[in-house]
Simulated scan of single mutants.
Amino acid sequence: MNPVLSWQEHGECHSAAWRSESRHQPPQRIEAVAQISAEQALSLIHQNTALLWRGDYHQGKQLLAAIKKRVRSHSKPAADFHRHRLQQSQHSRLFNLLLLEVQPGFMLANGRAPDVQAALADVYGSANETPFLLPLNALLGFIGAHEWHKQGVPVPALGGAHIHVPFGVFSPLRGEYLDLLASAPLPPHTQTAWDIGTGSGVLAAILARRGIAHIIGTDSNPRAVAAARANIRRLGYSAQVQINATDLLPAGSADLIVCNPPWLPAKPGADIETALYDPNHAMLHALLAQAPARLNPGGELWLIMSDLAEHLGLRPANALAQWFADAGLAVAAHSHTRPQHAKAQRQHDPLHHARSRETTSLWRLVPQ
Rank of each mutant, 00 (worst) to 15 (best):
A17H: 01
S75F: 05
G60T: 06
P27V: 14
E31T: 07
L52R: 04
Q240G: 08
H24P: 09
R223A: 15
A109G: 10
E273D: 15
Y177R: 07
Y57P: 06
A66V: 03
L351W: 07
G211H: 07
I232F: 03
H336E: 12
R338N: 06
H189P: 00
L288R: 05
A228T: 03
A119E: 10
L173H: 06
G197C: 04
P135Q: 06
A113M: 09
R346K: 15
F170R: 09
V33Q: 15
P279R: 11
F132R: 08
L44R: 15
S37T: 15
K343H: 13
F132Y: 12
H74M: 11
Q345R: 14
P154I: 13
A50Q: 12
L63S: 12
Q240R: 05
T49M: 05
Q347M: 06
T360A: 02
A34L: 00
A161N: 02
D326L: 02
S75Q: 15
R355A: 03
P261M: 10
D278N: 11
L351A: 11
T218P: 06
A344D: 02
N48I: 01
P250T: 06
L98M: 14
A208M: 03
H46Q: 15
A41S: 10
P166I: 07
K68N: 08
H353C: 08
P187T: 03
A118I: 10
M1W: 05
V155L: 09
G159H: 10
G236W: 05
T246C: 13
S6V: 00
R85Y: 00
L235E: 08
P77K: 12
A161I: 00
